[in-house]
């Protein structure tokens, strides 16, 4: 396990995030068709229900039935939004609303953005001390 300084972590993550946004904006601008921007919104919103539900359920000290239901709803909607971020460009390209190359660019850009958000959460996640 190599120790990486937090500064280089932040620099790397921001570079990857900028690359993802660049890919998506290029996939919109090259064909003058701004529909792939939906992918940015979906992938930026994808970790939100999970985080909100877990923090909302984390107010209880014990794992009660209602809080686990709330956490499950957050997980369900996270899975829903990740797959919808992947399937919206495929769907648009299948019906030739956007170009196939734009589909590939927006897919890779969206995956880069989502991976950045996830690794950012994983890098700076500190479990609570009991």
């Amino acid at each position: 396990m190599v120790q990486i300084s937090p500064l280089s972590k932040i620099i790397t993550l921001s570079t990857v995030l900028a690359t993802g946004f660049l890919l998506i904006i290029l996939s919109c601008a090259l064909w003058n068709n701004w529909l792939p921007l939906i992918v940015v919104a979906v992938f930026c919103l994808a970790p939100a229900p999970n985080a909100i539900c877990q923090s909302w359920a984390g107010q209880d000290d014990f794992m009660s039935e209602s809080s686990s239901t709330v956490v499950d709803f957050g997980r369900f909607s996270t899975g829903f939004m990740v797959v919808s971020g992947l399937s919206i460009p495929v769907m648009l390209a299948h019906n030739s609303i956007i170009n196939t190359a734009a589909m590939w660019m927006s897919l890779s850009g969206g995956l880069l953005i989502y991976a950045t958000i996830i690794t950012f959460g994983a890098f700076f996640y500190e479990p609570e001390e009991f």
């Binding site: 369900f76 829903f80 299948h94």
Partner: peptide, 18 residues
Amino acid sequence: GVYASGAIFSLGFYAMLD
């Protein structure tokens, strides 16, 4: 299981939207 359930639901919904 819950993540996969959301993913499968999403696949079905986007098949219909497609």
